[in-house]
């Protein structure tokens, strides 16, 4: 009796000592973006890749050609799940139409992180991106600060089903209404592509010649609006507040074509999105915030070449 007890204790001690550390395992994380063509997404991907390298992840990055193609996005979600993704870093083109695909992925055990633009699903464990309502208000504020007197505003927005664009527009409307000296004359929902946005903006400017402020709510629409103003020759008469950093709009900021840019921290969205996915997969998701607000800046001609302005506008490669 005594002997067997002793033997058991010894065995337990030896096993304790012999415990080997579990081998590290590469996690598979898939990013499904709204698009792969804009500078905005290039910066997001750069951030994502930095995090992927840092946390030793298998990272796949996909996105449709245009920011309206939610069906392709749904197919990409399904494909990513098929390819063994354990976590999905996702930006929804359509708040509602993407929900089923995300729910299905979550049902199959995939952890969901949303960046930039939300989706109508309870499976989303964290949202990382801009506080879009506040960003919309910032855009309106920049327009109000840059334009004395009455403002007659034209909105150049993109897909009406995209959650972030709608929130920004809502924020802008609220801030403009609060000012008491602005009215929204027209609002277009154009395709999120510079060429189309330019055509639609030109049409709006022609239809509403009283417009003296344009607010565009993402990078392609901002580029389109800038081109439209340039083409219409009304750059001096019409103020333009855009979103995000593109060489065309940055050039426009220098020349006066663009008056202000609301610059999101795109690199951080990519980095934090992937980092959050990693934390969820490694069981560190307990203290994760439901919403992570990445910083947003108003960049004008005055502050664009300050060191902070440079850091916000220009990616370091």
């Amino acid at each position: 009796m005594r002997q067997s007890k002793l033997a058991a204790a010894l065995l337990a001690l030896l096993m304790l000592g012999g415990c080997a550390a579990a081998p590290a395992q590469r996690h598979n994380v898939a990013i499904v973006a709204k698009s792969t063509s804009t500078e905005f997404w290039a910066a997001v991907f750069a951030g994502a890749e930095a995090a992927g390298a840092e946390y030793n992840l298998d990272l796949s990055i996909t996105g449709p050609e245009t920011e309206e193609d939610y069906e392709t996005q749904n197919a990409m979600i399904a494909q990513a799940v098929e390819d063994g993704a354990e976590a999905l870093v996702f930006s929804a083109i359509d708040f509602e139409a993407n929900a089923a695909a995300i729910n299905e992925a979550a049902r199959r055990g995939v952890r969901i992180v949303v960046i930039d633009s939300g989706v109508d699903s309870d499976a989303v464990e964290t949202y990382i991106g801009t506080d879009n309502l506040a960003a919309g208000r910032m855009a309106a504020q920049a327009a109000l600060d840059g334009t004395p007197g009455r403002l007659t505003v034209g909105f150049v927005n993109y897909d009406v089903n995209s959650a972030n664009g709608q929130l920004r527009e809502q924020g802008a409307r609220e801030a403009l209404a609060d000012s008491g000296r602005a009215q929204v004359a027209a609002c277009i929902n154009t395709v999120s592509e510079a060429g189309a946005a330019m055509q639609d903006t030109l049409a709006m400017l022609n239809a509403h010649p009283e417009i003296n402020v344009l607010i565009a709510f993402n990078e392609p629409t901002s580029v389109g609006a800038a081109r439209a103003l340039d083409a219409s020759g009304r750059a001096d008469a019409v103020a333009l507040v855009g979103f995000d950093s593109n060489v065309e709009t940055v050039d426009g900021l220098q020349t006066g074509l663009v008056d202000a840019l609301i610059v999101q921290n795109t690199y951080a969205m990519g980095y934090l999105g992937v980092e959050s996915a990693y934390r969820l997969l490694t069981g560190q998701g307990g203290s994760m915030l439901r919403t992570v607000d990445t910083a947003t800046r108003i960049i004008t001609r005055e502050n664009m070449f300050t060191i902070d302005g440079q850091k916000a506008l220009f990616a370091f490669e």
């Binding site: 921290n265 951080a268 910083a295 490669e317």
Partner: peptide, 9 residues
């Protein structure tokens, strides 16, 4: 990690 620093991360 300059860009991470510039992005405030």
């Amino acid at each position: 990690q300059q860009q991470l620093i510039y992005a405030g991360l």
